[in-house]
Design a binder for these strands. Structure first.
Lengths: 360, 360
DNA sequence: CAGGCTTTTGCACACGATTGCAAAGAGTAT
DNA sequence: ATACTCTTTGCAATCGTGTGCAAAAGCCTG
């Protein structure tokens, strides 16, 4: 690799002169500056950012920690963050925490070792675990912004959705069209009063609807969702609506319902949460709550960059709350007549009466 | 930020001793080593990788360039690569080239400046444009591996699918169940003899089927797909099958067909390419060609790491070809009776007879 | 106790860039 | 010719680590 020294020798000047010339410093004679720039270009010189970063004590890199990238919610965030970061002149170091508590800590530690200028942390479903790491980060003055609610983190910058509100809107919509036996399905999360489940449950209670244990399914993988759906359908009194509290799970729910020959929404209403692009691909199109991912990402990045730029700014921690909106599409309708399920079409012991459409 | 020096002062030794102690060097007295390690841990010391990288002339980072991350094909690659890289002890620097020729060059240049140990480049649809950058990279000895076929790049390491074979299998399947008026839809690509389109077309020709201009639609965005589908349906002799040569596009095709009240596969067969998870969510489940993304990613990363480890290995450039397989699911069936479209149900002037299922 | 060997530590330089400061060179007024 | 200013360049220190080599310290043997 070719260095400043090499160019200096080529040009017959000192390396400091080359450095200044390439940086466009006005201290250098315009003629020599041009000559050096040309020379460097011809020689294919590329600055060694590692050395530069060491000297200037900044890497122009932000670290992005995301649980995974298969759930289509996260790629959307990654794409937006990447675009915004690039626009602002920052590189992106991506870390996938795998929703694992231990791994999250490792990710943050690694980013810290790399001396990234700031960290964007998208919290996994279960909330932030790597608290020690985050505190250490704050103590050493590295800006960090969280996306998603985390308990007991009032002193940390945060961008979150008022999912509670979205959840209750969704519930009220379902109640409004006549549902009262509603199941919920997803991975349990404890994100306090800002959680989508919190709002959903609250709205149900408000309407005097009790949510029995039977109707609460924990599931994250394809197979778990399948089991969950099967269990729901096998109940003496199956639900008339299912709230899968992530669009990606709702997609799976619809898939398994269809495989079981239940018509959505005629025989079962399904709603999701997030308003991914996916929601519009689905058949039927999914009723969901839009999280305004774009605004989330925008505030997320701008807040961090603002913190990086003037690290001394002692405006207290910011908590930015973004209100989502209900998006009503075709996947929900009035509850079916009581006898439809179980007697006429559904066979809990196997999908035999009406073969599923896939063959693999 | 706390440095080796600081720890050295704390421990009353020189910074070299601390460096060695933390690295677990056998040169250091076990007692002092432990004492120093404890001290460093307590003080919250974290090595400055920037300085370390400069000294050891390696960053333990690989750069991953991907066009975007919204098309669900790429996140899958990103996830796999990230996991494999982490396992091998490498960090990941993600760059989104945006399928833009200029941007791709910038990405590579940036990665080079950062002195990543190697680069994984997933070529955009149109093939590699930043040839200069890649050549420069090779010249300076930085390993690079391409994913996806690129013309005139025989001297570069490459992992690709034998998409041609997959394409022809797909075509033969369609022909086998009776289709002869088949449309193709996607973004034009010129990836030579390894392209899925190449194989598809070849198989058609072999069967004596001509692919008229009308039946070739160029489309990448939702709206373009919609227009394309509309145009196909409005033809005097509409196709009986559509080959959307990316699953993500096939998803859109199905969506717009459904909105237009055409039943898949009864009235229109749709097939895709890639076998994304998405393909199984769709209704009906999508017949497609599986690209074995996992094996792609695995070979992709291992080849690069192998190159990094023994940079001197002068085994010539490797071209790894992975054969995809046909995955038959519910989205294809025999061609419909001729009069079905246009007369009975389809209304090219608006989706009025049968309202689409979404309301936004 | 001298001399040799082994273990343990420190000195000093290198990695490749940035930058304050001094110095050299050029031009000008006194 | 001197002194002074202004422009242009080079010297040298610095960022935080890693590491070859020398030196110190400890141990053993004769």
């Amino acid at each position: 690799m070719i260095t400043l020294q090499d160019i200096a020798r080529l040009a017959g000047v000192s390396h400091s002169t080359v450095s200044r010339a390439l940086a466009g410093s006005p201290l250098i004679n315009p003629d020599t500056r041009q000559r050096i720039q040309l020379l460097a270009h011809e020689a294919g010189y590329q600055v060694n950012q590692v050395a530069r970063n060491l000297k200037v004590r900044s890497t122009c890199t932000i670290g992005l920690v995301v649980p995974e990238v298969l759930n289509p919610y996260y790629p959307k965030v990654v794409q937006l963050v990447a675009d915004l970061a690039r626009e602002a002149g920052y590189n992106l170091q991506l870390q996938l925490s795998g929703a694992d508590q231990k791994a999250e800590a490792t990710c943050i530690a690694s980013l810290r070792e790399q001396r990234v200028d700031g960290i964007l942390l998208v919290t996994a479903e279960h909330g932030l675990v790597a608290r020690d790491q985050v505190e250490a980060l704050l103590a050493s003055g590295v800006p960090i912004v969280l996306m998603g609610w985390v308990e007991d983190a009032e002193h940390i910058d945060m961008v979150m959705g008022d999912d509670s509100k979205g959840g209750s809107e969704l519930a009220r919509h379902l109640i409004g069209i006549g549902h009262s036996r509603i199941a919920i399905l997803g991975k349990t999360a404890h994100r306090g009063v800002y959680d989508r489940l919190f709002g959903f449950r609250a709205a149900l209670e408000e309407a005097g609807i009790v949510l029995s244990e039977d109707l609460q399914i924990e599931a994250t993988s394809d197979i778990e969702v399948k089991r969950g759906v099967t269990r729901l359908l096998a109940l003496p009194a199956p639900p008339t609506a299912i709230f899968a509290y992530q669009d990606s799970l709702a997609a799976l729910v619809i898939k398994h319902l269809t495989d079981a020959c239940l018509a959505v929404p005629q025989e079962m209403t399904v709603v999701g949460f997030d308003d991914l692009d996916l929601a519009a691909y689905l058949c039927p199109h999914l009723t969901t709550v839009g999280g305004h991912i774009e605004s989330h990402a925008f505030r997320f990045v701008s807040l961090l960059i603002e913190r990086i730029r003037k690290a001394s700014s002692d405006t207290g921690p910011q908590h930015i709350v973004i209100t989502p909106r209900l998006v009503v599409r075709g996947s929900c309708g009035p509850p079916r007549k009581e006898e439809t399920i179980g007697n006429r079409r559904y066979h809990p012991n196997g999908y035999t009466q009406c073969a599923p459409t896939h063959t693999d």
